[in-house]
Amino acid sequence: MTDAAQVAAIEARAARMRYEIVEMIAEAGSGHPGGSLSAADIVASLYFGVMKHDPLRPDWEERDRFVLSKGHAGPVLYAALAEAGYFGHDNLKTLRKLGSILQGHPDSNKCAGIEVSTGSLGQGLAIANGMALALRMDANPARVFCLLGDGEMQEGEVWEAAMFAAHHKLDNVMAIVDHNGLQIDGACDSVMCLGGVAEKLDAFGWEVREVGGHDVEDLLKALTEPPMTEGVPVAVVAYTIKGKGVSFMEGDAGWHGKAPDAEQTTLALAQLAEALEGGAR
């Protein structure tokens, strides 16, 4: 199913999304570039290669659902929604401004295509589980994809939800961890050691797939293959680079939650534009 042309098309989408992420955060003057850039390939793969959805019918019952548990990465979701056609690209300029549909953290009451508001970390997987339960009750074949941060895995509720999904055999929910190794105060392992996210999820009864989070071909495979055992929820642990695509942001926790200044923006956009051109290989 994953042919080279599809992979290249998704890579091109991800490259455009990265450009827009930096552009919109620079325009807003605040926001979270690091975790938005690290998730760009994951979110592009979901929206343009994995999920069934229709921008013209955001309420279509059988659409696959996406929950951005790491809500501070709103810009990556906004870029994907704009790319997909949920709203015009011009909205991206209004990010974080008074009256915008694009709030600092995703707001489902203000913007079509957002399933649920997020921003308080640790809550998305429980929400996704609830959605998956309801879908199963209604014999709805739709699936629920939930993207978490690795630092976010420190929240206790994540593990309550992890236990729940396995217990209730929710194989229509998928957890994806953007494992970039960084949070706000520094490296996850220095702030509060995660000690093997993949092993922990395995111990909680999940089928775990470890994958390079910037390899679209591998991502597509990991995100689409059905569970090996029926009733076992799948977690994709995607190893990523925070700030991916902008040389001076890569691997630097300092770029978690600040906007680039004018000079930095020019430099970043030049790098991302280059990737855009190179992307159509």
């Binding site: 605040s30 974080r96 600092g104 921003g119």
Partner: peptide, 8 residues
């Protein structure tokens, strides 16, 4: 708090 919005 400003631009972070209502969740914060």
């Amino acid at each position: 708090v400003g631009p972070d919005g209502g969740s914060h």
